[in-house]
Amino acid sequence: MSAITRGTIQAAMEVLAGIRPVHQLARRLDPRCLANLQHRAALIRREFVRTGNPALARLHRNSTVRSVRVCEVADGIFEASAVVVDDVRARAVAVRLERAKQVWRVTELVIG
């Protein structure tokens, strides 16, 4: 479960950095999480274009998932937290994974 969480978070950070298309996470994230991630990435891009702030260009760049902690809260439901470090700062990420039809899907994704 830790590997799934780590890979999903890494991919989400790459979406926010603008180096991975969001549709690559469509099978891993539920539709609401996918839409929220897409919206956040669009806001970052739009703000960078509007202001040209170089700090926004570095935001989420070179993200590395440093640690992952996973806890089973019920049958087929896991919650995880992770620490992600990028060029600008360290941040916390929280994830909830649920098993549906033999596939693990992220139903909650909160990136600090």
Rank of each mutant, 00 (worst) to 15 (best):
Gly7Asn: 13
Arg32Ser: 11
Met1Asp: 05
Val65Asp: 10
Arg50Cys: 09
Ala35Lys: 14
Arg99Tyr: 03
Arg91Val: 09
Arg66Gln: 15
Ala17Glu: 06
Asp30Arg: 03
Val88Tyr: 01
Ala94Thr: 09
Pro54Phe: 00
Arg20Ser: 00
Leu25Phe: 07
Ala55Lys: 11
Val103Lys: 12
Gln102Tyr: 06
Ala11Thr: 06
Gly112Thr: 13
Gln102Thr: 11
Arg6Lys: 15
Ala26Gly: 02
Gly18Tyr: 05
Ser63Gly: 13
His60Leu: 02
Ile19Thr: 15
Pro54Asp: 01
Glu108Asn: 08
Arg27Asp: 14
Ala55Asp: 12
Ser63Trp: 01
Ile111Lys: 01
Val103Met: 11
Asp87Lys: 00
Ser2Cys: 05
Ser67Ala: 15
Phe48Trp: 10
Gly112Trp: 04
Cys33Lys: 02
Thr107Arg: 06
Gly112Met: 04
Ala57Pro: 01
Arg66His: 10
Val110His: 11
Cys71Trp: 01
Arg45Ser: 12
Gln10Tyr: 02
Val106Cys: 13
Val85Lys: 07
Ala94Glu: 09
Thr8Asn: 10
Gln10Leu: 09
Ala94Tyr: 10
Leu59Asp: 02
Trp104Val: 00
Pro21Gln: 07
Val110Asp: 12
Leu34Thr: 08
Ala26Phe: 05
Leu56Val: 09
Asp87Phe: 00
Val15Pro: 02
Gln24Thr: 14
Arg45Cys: 08
Arg27His: 10
Gln24Glu: 14
Thr8Asp: 08
Arg27Leu: 12
Cys33Thr: 03
Ile111Thr: 03
Ala94Arg: 12
Ser63Asp: 02
Val83Asp: 11
Ala41Ile: 07
Gln24Ile: 04
Arg28Trp: 05
Arg91Leu: 15
Arg40His: 08
Glu72Asn: 03
Ser63Val: 02
Val65Pro: 09
His23Glu: 14
Asp75Phe: 10
Arg46Phe: 11
Leu34Tyr: 08
Ala92Val: 12
Gly112Glu: 15
Leu25Tyr: 05
Gln10Phe: 04
Trp104Tyr: 00
Ile4Gly: 03
Gln10Trp: 02
Ser67Asn: 14
Ala100Gly: 00
Pro54Glu: 00
Thr107Asp: 01
Gly52Cys: 03
Val95Asn: 01
Val106Gly: 04
Gln102Cys: 08
Leu34Ser: 07
Ala12Thr: 04
Leu97Asn: 05
Arg45Phe: 07
Arg50Thr: 13
Ala74Met: 09
Thr107Tyr: 00
Asp30Asn: 14
Arg58Pro: 00
Ile111Leu: 07
Ala90Val: 08
Ala57Met: 02
Gln38Met: 09
Ala42His: 11
Leu97Glu: 08
Arg96Cys: 10
Val93Gly: 09
Asp87Leu: 08
Gly52Phe: 03
Arg50Gly: 06
Pro54Ala: 01
Val106Ile: 14
Pro54His: 01
Ala26Asp: 13
Val68Lys: 05
Ala42Arg: 12
Glu79Met: 03
Ala3Val: 11
Gly76His: 04
Leu29Val: 07
Gly112Arg: 10
Glu108Trp: 02
Val106Leu: 04
Glu14Ala: 15
Val84Gly: 11
Ala12Trp: 01
His39Pro: 00
Ile19Trp: 01
Phe78Lys: 06
Val110Ala: 13
Ala42Phe: 07
Val85Thr: 12
Val15Gly: 08
Glu79Trp: 01
Gln10Met: 02
Asp86Gln: 11
Val93Trp: 05
Arg96Gly: 04
Ala55Asn: 11
Val73Arg: 13
Leu59Cys: 06
Val110Trp: 04
Ala82Gln: 06
Gln102Arg: 14
Val73Tyr: 08
Asn62Lys: 07
Asn36Asp: 14
Met1Cys: 06
